[in-house]
Design a protein around this nucleic acid. Structure first.
Lengths: 345, 345
DNA sequence: ACTTAGCACTCTCAAAGGCAAAGTGCTAAT
DNA sequence: ATTAGCACTTTGCCTTTGAGAGTGCTAAGT
C-alpha cells in the first residue's frame, strides 16, 4: 500500500474539489486550467490513469472524465482536507439561535437539526439522548381523573417524557404523592437503565408485597422508562437539490429510509462509541440505501457523559471542509447549552 | 347552468375512472371499449367535445385524449360518486390499531396519520386539537432545580404539553403546589383560550399585586398556553409514486410545502368550520403549490365539540370512493377513542 | 335528428442518423 | 520525465422520420 506522493495528492484534491462543485466527471483539461498545477493535461491524464488503477477514480464510460470513488473521498478526508474552525459570523448566529430556544433538549436538538439543514443545504438530523445513558432526575404522578394518571418524568438535560396510563382502581392525590416520593428516592441519581432495573428488581422483592400502591408505582415507572429512542430529521427536501438524485426512484428509496428512521438509528450506536465528529460514507454503511450519500455526525453530552448525536446527511459529494466544522461547532454548542441547563442554580 | 344529462354523466364518470387508473389522457376509443356504454367512439368524441366546451375536460394538445379538470372532479364528487361505508376488514384492522395506541391524542393522531398514509397510499396528516378549542383540565408545576420549573398542563383528550421555564428566584415545592392549586381553581373548566385570557386579566388585577408568587404563576400559565398548533404529516414519500410528480421540481415544491406546514395549517380552519368529511381540490386552495393535489379532511371531536382534523393529501386523481370512506371512518374512530379517554371512570 | 363510418389532419414519442464537444490513450519528440 | 499532437470513443443534442393514438369533420345510414 504505497502512500500517494505529493503530486498525486494534489491531483486527487483538485478532482474532488471540482467534482464537489459540479457533480460532473472531471477531465484533465479542466484540472490543468482551473487549478494551479504546473502540468500539462497529458501528464495529468497519466496521473489520473494511475489513480484510477489504484481505485481512487472511476470512469462512467471510456473517454469521459473521472469521478472520485468512496475510497478517494475517504482518503481525502483522512489525509488531505484540513478543517478550520467555523467562521465567526456563522458561529455567532448559531449561538444566538441556540440561546433563543426553549431550554430543554428536545427543542434544542430539533432547532439545531433545522439549523444544520439550512447551513449545510442538506438534511439535518439529531438524536435525543438515549434513555439508557440519560440520568434520572425526577418523576411525578399527576391525577387526571379517577382512572387515569399522567406520569411525567424528567431526565438529564431536561428531557421530559410523559405518558398517560390507566389504573384499575381509584388513587387519591395524596397517594400519588407518596408514589412520587417513593420512586424519586428509590432511583435518585441513577441512569435510566439502572433506574429501570432497580424498579423491576423492587417489584419482585418482598418489601412491596403488602403495599399495592408502591407496587403500582414501580410498575408504572418501569413502563414509562421503557420508551425508545427518538430521531429528528429536518430539511429532507434539500436532498432534492443534488443533481445525482435526479431520478425519482432514487429519491423514493432515500425518503423511505428517512421515514423508517431505523437505518439512521443504527448509526447512533456507532457515533456514540466515541466522542467527536465522525464521517460515514455511504458505502461504509451496510445499507446500500445511502449509496452516494455521506453522514457527518457529532456527539453531544453533558457532565462528561455522551448523551446523543446530531449531524448532516448529504450527497457524498458534499463540502466537508464546511460541513465538518459546522457539525463540530454545533455539537459543542448543544453540549454547552446542556451544561447551562444543569448549572443554572 | 344546464345540468348534465345522464349520458354525459356516464361519459364523465368513465373518463374519470380511467384517468384515475392510468394518469394518462383518455381517448374516446378506450371509453367505448372498456366501459359498457353503447355508443361508438365517434359519438363519444362528440360528447367529450361538448364536455370540454363546458369546462369539464381539457386536452394537453390537439388530438390527444382528454384529461378531467378540477371542475370535473368537483362535479364527480358532488353528483356522481357515492361513497359506501368502509369495508369491514379494514374497519376491523383500523380499530384494533387505534385501540393498541397510547391513550393520548398525540399518539392517536400520529398513529392514525400513519395508518391513513398506508391505506390510501398517499400522504396522511393530522392536526392535534387546537388549543383555542381544547378545554383546560389540569396544570402542574414541578421543580427541576433551584431555578427551573417544569410546567405541565393537560387539556381535553389528554393532550399533554410541557415546557421548562427559568425563574428568577428560588421557589420551594410547597410554593409550587400553591401555584398549581391557584391556577387550577382559577381556570377550571374553561377553554384554553378563555383560560389564557383569564390569566392575563388576573395579572393586571389588583388582587395579585402583593403576591409575587401567584403573579408568577399566572405569568407562566399564560406563557405555556400560548403555544401554537401542531401538525403531523406521515408517508410523504408516497407522493413520489404518482406519475404526475415525475419531475423533481414539482416534488421539491411539494415537499417544501410539507416542511413548512403552514399551508396545511390554513386548511384546518376551513375544515373545522363544519364537522364531517370535506374535499379540497388543489385549485380551490389559494396556494398553487397544491396544484394537481387534493385533500380529504375529516374532523374529530369529543363531547360534541370539534377538536381537530385528520386527512389525506394525494394527487387529485385519487380514488375518492375509497379515500372518503377511509377518512370518514378514521375520524369517527378517533372521536370514539377520545370519548373513552374521558369516560374512563 | 341522432348516430356512425371513414378519412384527413395533428401531435407525440421513439428510433436513427449526423455532428460538435469533451475527453482519453498512445506515440513520438523534447 | 514531460508534453504536443493526433486518432479514437462516447455523449449530448439536433433533426428527421415513421408509427401510433387521437381528434374533428363530413357524409351516409337509421
Amino acid at each position: 500500500m504505497e502512500p500517494l506522493n505529493e503530486r498525486r495528492k494534489r491531483i486527487l484534491q483538485a478532482v474532488i474539489s471540482e467534482y464537489v462543485m459540479t457533480a460532473e466527471p472531471v477531465g484533465s483539461r479542466t484540472i490543468s486550467k482551473r487549478y494551479e498545477i504546473d502540468l500539462s493535461p497529458a501528464t495529468i491524464r497519466n496521473i489520473m490513469s494511475d489513480l484510477e488503477e489504484l481505485g481512487y477514480f472511476m470512469q462512467p464510460h471510456t473517454s469521459s472524465g473521472r469521478v472520485p470513488t468512496d475510497k478517494a473521498f475517504r482518503f481525502y478526508i483522512e489525509e488531505i482536507a484540513h478543517f478550520n474552525p467555523l467562521d465567526a459570523d456563522t458561529q455567532q448566529s448559531l449561538q444566538s439561535r441556540a440561546e433563543h430556544t426553549e431550554r430543554d433538549v428536545r427543542s434544542l436538538v430539533s432547532e439545531t437539526s433545522k439549523a444544520l439543514s439550512e447551513y449545510s443545504q442538506s438534511v439535518g438530523f439529531g438524536f435525543l439522548p438515549t434513555l439508557a445513558a440519560a440520568r434520572f432526575r425526577h418523576i411525578q404522578f399527576i391525577s387526571l381523573n379517577r382512572r387515569q394518571v399522567l406520569v411525567v418524568f424528567v431526565s438529564d438535560a431536561n428531557l421530559v417524557q410523559n405518558r398517560v396510563v390507566n389504573i384499575d382502581r381509584e388513587v387519591r392525590q395524596a397517594d400519588l404523592e407518596r408514589m412520587s416520593n417513593y420512586l424519586n428516592a428509590l432511583v435518585a441519581g441513577l441512569t435510566l437503565k439502572e433506574a429501570r432495573a432497580r424498579m423491576v428488581e423492587e417489584l419482585t422483592s418482598e418489601r412491596l408485597q403488602y403495599d399495592a400502591l408502591l407496587q403500582k408505582a414501580a410498575e408504572l415507572g418501569a413502563a414509562v422508562m421503557g420508551e425508545g429512542e427518538d430521531v429528528i430529521i429536518r430539511g429532507e427536501s434539500n436532498m432534492l437539490l443534488a443533481p445525482e438524485f435526479g431520478e425519482v426512484d432514487r429519491i423514493r428509496t432515500l425518503f423511505r429510509a428517512f421515514e423508517e428512521k431505523n437505518l439512521i438509528v443504527q448509526l447512533l450506536d456507532r457515533a456514540l462509541a466515541s466522542p467527536g465528529v465522525h464521517i460515514y460514507l455511504g458505502n461504509e454503511v451496510e445499507e446500500q440505501t445511502l449509496e452516494n450519500c455521506a453522514l457527518v455526525t457529532g456527539t453531544y453530552g453533558s457532565g462528561g457523559k455522551l448523551l446523543g448525536a446530531i449531524g448532516v446527511i448529504g450527497p457524498m459529494r458534499m463540502d466537508y471542509t464546511r460541513v465538518v466544522p459546522l457539525v463540530e461547532y454545533t455539537s459543542r454548542l448543544i453540549s454547552q447549552q446542556l451544561e447551562t441547563f444543569s448549572t443554572d442554580e
